[in-house]
Amino acid sequence: MTERILIIDDDTRLSAMLRDYLRANGYGVRAAATASAGLADLARDPADAVILDVMLPDLDGFEVLKRIRAGSDVPVLMLTAKGEETDRIVGLEIGADDYLPKPFSPRELLARLRAILRRRAGPATPGVLRFGRLEIDPGSRAARLNGKPCDITGHQFDILLALAESAGRILSRDQLLDRVKGIEADAFDRSVDVHISRIRASIEDDPKHPRRIVTVRGAGYVFARRQDDEG
């Protein structure tokens, strides 16, 4: 089945170029030039991924992303002409799956798009990981705490899964970047910190004093086993 991509960008020349390029690579593509048109399009016909520009004429991309995340976990690749670290951090914190500064090559965008779509599909990994009240299901790519779904993005699920599969072992930021493809290597390791903060907010009883995902100063993070994991 052809995967459907929605582009929300007021640069009509760029959208047309991307539409032609992605269609040539086997995707179904449609485009909207305003935030309101893009949100209406997405509500009318769900997409498999959204390419979202930060600078739009009616709403900025961050607000659009918030509205998308209010009702959908569709993968979102954000574009910006600014390329500033602050914008990347904000986008990732709100729930973007990846971030690509302009100008970019169509080949790089295609690679990133394929990466977030692969993460959404996920590998056919059997077995639910259980840690006390926390369940991590690689098959459905879902995490649950006390039986309730955790509010994390696909990218954050990948980080959580990588940490859980290595429970008790310290993983550096570089190791997490290697395991979770798609985070831009030069997005400075702080992008990992943002994702970890979001994960903690979803799985920790007290995110400010985490007991599950623990920071090891100067080394990275460790997914800590606890006494209540057994049984």
Rank of each mutant, 00 (worst) to 15 (best):
L6E: 10
I8W: 04
I8N: 04
I8Y: 05
I8M: 05
D9C: 11
D9K: 12
D11Q: 09
T12N: 06
S15V: 03
S15G: 12
A16K: 08
R19S: 15
Y21C: 04
R23K: 07
A24G: 15
G26E: 07
R30M: 10
A31V: 01
A33C: 05
S36Y: 00
G38Q: 03
L39A: 02
A40L: 05
P46W: 11
V54M: 14
M55L: 11
E63P: 10
R67N: 05
I68K: 08
R69G: 04
V74N: 04
V74S: 08
V76I: 14
L77P: 13
L79V: 11
T80G: 04
D87E: 15
R88Y: 11
R88V: 14
I89Y: 13
V90A: 10
D98L: 03
Y99W: 12
L100Q: 05
K102L: 06
F104R: 12
E108L: 13
A111P: 07
I116Y: 03
R119S: 05
R120D: 07
A121E: 09
A124G: 11
R130Y: 09
F131K: 01
L134A: 14
S140D: 07
R144P: 15
N146M: 06
K148T: 10
D151M: 01
G154I: 00
I159D: 08
L160E: 00
A162H: 05
E165A: 02
S166M: 02
R169K: 14
L171E: 03
S172G: 12
S172F: 09
L177N: 02
K181V: 13
E184K: 12
E184T: 06
A185L: 13
A187H: 04
A187L: 04
D189R: 01
H195V: 08
H195E: 10
H195W: 01
S197R: 07
S202M: 06
S202Q: 14
S202C: 13
E204R: 02
E204K: 03
D206E: 15
H209P: 05
H209L: 11
H209Q: 11
A219K: 14
A219F: 15
Y221D: 10
V222Y: 00
A224Q: 09
A224S: 08
R226H: 11
Q227K: 14
G231D: 09
